[in-house]
Design a protein around this nucleic acid. Structure first.
Length: 272
DNA sequence: AAGTAGTCCTGAGTGC
DNA sequence: TGCACTCAGGACTACT
């Protein structure tokens, strides 16, 4: 479900509310979500204080005063919300009770999400983080590195955009939007792109992701921030889920096609 | 090594 | 109304 902009929006909405709050109880309603939970590691975070929230790729990190961190991945349908006195819902798998009567609730009906607890200092050495590529909005984004990586890949550029070993955080919705923004056909082989095209691709990545964050992310079905507020970027989507509708540039119908099992949307006229 | 297909899971939507 | 079927925003594993 949520891609990088959605996690960034959740992180921002959690940040101020959680700092210095103490975890007074940890409720585990499901021992395994996507993977079995490491109960011992998780439970030792009881009574720790929250220091800060941050994001790496599509992961949300909560650093704690005991030098451990919670790591959440929301999979396709996960939500992380702050509530007080809310009745427990189906699929509320994991709940952190805080000392201000609020609760952080992890709800995920499809159970593709993940919850980890790691020593804070070891996070970047963990398997889930050690192989990640560049953050798309990092200030020192190395475009030459991306150019050399794409030159070695014969996969469609759409698949390359979604490969977290190259660039992190881009999922199916934003991959289609970014390629439309940069006027590149999603079926083009990654190694067929010119340097100029890759530069325009990187500009489109920044433009689309930043605009999505400003608009609180995209809500097609499940996404909401920590207060339950939904996103607005779905109203600004130019190709995603607009198959059959008129291209906003040339008025030809937007096409829909499968690529490696995922749906792509594009304009055959505007994207070459 | 690189690329692709299959897989985990629930719920919403569609068509008969 | 009910049933069967398809599809969904991610990412890992196991094949070729």
């Amino acid at each position: 479900m949520p891609e990088m902009p959605e996690i960034e929006v959740i992180k921002n909405s959690l940040q101020n509310k959680l700092q210095k709050k103490q975890i007074i109880d940890i409720e585990i309603n499901r021992l395994s979500i996507r993977y079995p939970l490491d109960i011992d590691s998780i439970m030792q975070n009881k009574f720790a204080e929250i220091i800060e929230c941050r994001r790496i790729a599509k992961y949300l990190i909560i650093d704690l005063s005991n030098n451990f961190s919670f790591v959440f991945h929301l999979g396709m349908s996960g939500r992380l919300q702050i509530k007080n006195n809310a009745p427990k819902l189906k699929h509320d798998h994991f709940i952190l009770a805080l000392n201000n009567d609020e609760k952080i609730i992890f709800n995920d009906y499809r159970r593709f999400g993940m919850i980890y607890s790691f020593p804070t200092k070891t996070i970047m050495q963990q398997d889930i983080f050690s192989k990640l590529g560049q953050e798309p909005l990092q200030k020192n984004f190395d475009i030459n590195l991306l150019i050399s990586q794409l030159a070695k890949r014969n996969i469609p550029i759409k698949n390359a955009l979604m490969d977290n070993k190259l660039i992190t955080g881009i999922g199916n919705i934003y991959a289609s939007e970014i390629l439309f923004q940069s006027a590149i056909n999603p079926f083009r082989a990654a190694n067929s792109l010119s340097k100029e095209e890759i530069k325009s691709l990187v500009k489109a990545i920044e433009f689309v992701l930043e605009l999505a964050i400003k608009n609180n992310g995209t809500t097609l079905r499940d996404f909401a921030d920590s207060k339950g507020k939904i996103g607005e970027f779905q109203n600004l989507l130019k190709v995603y889920a607009r198959d059959g509708k008129a291209c906003l540039i040339c008025s030809n119908p937007i096409l829909k096609a499968k690529q490696s099992g995922r749906t792509s949307f594009y304009c055959i006229t505007c994207q070459n």
